[in-house]
Every structure is written in structure tokens, then in C-alpha cells.
């Protein structure tokens, strides 16, 4: 009978390989999201706009403010809707307040609709880049500086951005600040 050792080692190697492949799918998924703008996940890095403004097109940009799990923070979008030219720098303001009596840490997550628009929405500065630490009853005005890429597809005339605050107080150790 042929020795099975070689075949068994290959199969165990394949099993281990597929187990690691399962974990490799996670970063692969993020790469796939960036390329295709899958479900509106945005790149979380600041990008300077090219400075060329396409005034021929006016895109309506809407802002939605949510708190996940009815997190006890008051979070309101001050600019619900604005019109922006592709390439033009614009700013959207939000108001956020911690209604509880303890310090809390929140993380804003952004999602874009339609999802094709995700690739063409560049944020130069955004409160969603880092954690927001709010003490008891502390209120704060936060904002996002953004610009729309000039080669945004013609079909997109209206983009909606949903900001959702997540309570990550117990998820992250609060830095002593």
C-alpha cells in the first residue's frame, strides 16, 4: 500500500490554508469594497481635492445623523441638504451632545448612497476619522470638509451620507486626556 503520509500532509496543509484564507477574506473584502464602493464603505483617509471645479453640474448632498442602539447622545445634522459642484470644497456641520452623566466614547461610521458615489466622495477632514470622547452633558459642534470628484458619473445627481454614532465606550480603553 502506498504510504499515505504525503497525501495526508497535503490535505492538512489545504485545510490550514483554507482556514487562513477565511481570515484573509476580511482584508480582501475591504480592498474589494474600495474598488467597487461596495455598500458605500468610505476610505477613512484624508484626500486633498484637485482644485478643479466643474460648475456645470450641481449635485445635491443630503446628510443624515443616526445613533446606533438609540445611544443616549443627541446627534443632529445642521445642514440637512446642500448643493455642491464637483471639485468644490464644502463643509457640513453637526451638533452632538452626551446626555448621560458619565464620560462616553463614540465612533461615527459613514455610509453613502448610491454606493457608486462612495469612490468619488473625498473627505479632507472629518470627525468620523477618530473617536469622539464626550464628558457628562458635554455638547460639541463637529464638521466634515469634503469635495466631490469631478469624474463623478453623470447618473449621480443626489448623494446621501448617513453618519451613525456607535457607543464604543467599553470597546476601547479611554485614553487619559
Amino acid at each position: 500500500m502506498k504510504s499515505n503520509r504525503k497525501l495526508i500532509l497535503q490535505l492538512c496543509g489545504a485545510t490550514l490554508g483554507m482556514f487562513l484564507f477565511g481570515f484573509a477574506l476580511v482584508p480582501l473584502y475591504d480592498v474589494f469594497c474600495d474598488i467597487t464602493g461596495l455598500n458605500g464603505k468610505l476610505e477613512l483617509v484624508a484626500k486633498k481635492s484637485t482644485g478643479v471645479i466643474d460648475t456645470s453640474r450641481a449635485i445635491k448632498v443630503q446628510f443624515i445623523a443616526n445613533t446606533n442602539e438609540s445611544m443616549p447622545w443627541d446627534f443632529v445634522a445642521k445642514d440637512v441638504e446642500m448643493t455642491v459642484h464637483p471639485g468644490e470644497n464644502a463643509r457640513a456641520d453637526f451638533f452632538v451632545q452626551n446626555l448621560t452623566n458619565e464620560q462616553m466614547v463614540g465612533q461615527a461610521i459613514v455610509s453613502v448612497s448610491p454606493s457608486i458615489g462612495a469612490k468619488y466622495f473625498h473627505k479632507t477632514q472629518c470627525f468620523c476619522f477618530d473617536r469622539q470622547v464626550l464628558n457628562a452633558k458635554q455638547a460639541q459642534d463637529v464638521s466634515v470638509l469634503f469635495s466631490l470628484d469631478t469624474d463623478l458619473p453623470e447618473s449621480v445627481k443626489k448623494i446621501t451620507l448617513s453618519y451613525t454614532f456607535f457607543d464604543i465606550t467599553d470597546l476601547q480603553p479611554v485614553a487619559a486626556n
Binding site: I64, I109, S111, S113, P114, T160, S162, T164
Partner: peptide, 8 residues
Amino acid sequence: AIPGFINE
């Protein structure tokens, strides 16, 4: 309806 994301 996915928490944290918006579908249209």
C-alpha cells in the same frame, strides 16, 4: 436594513 450602513 443594516446597522451602520444605508441602502437605497
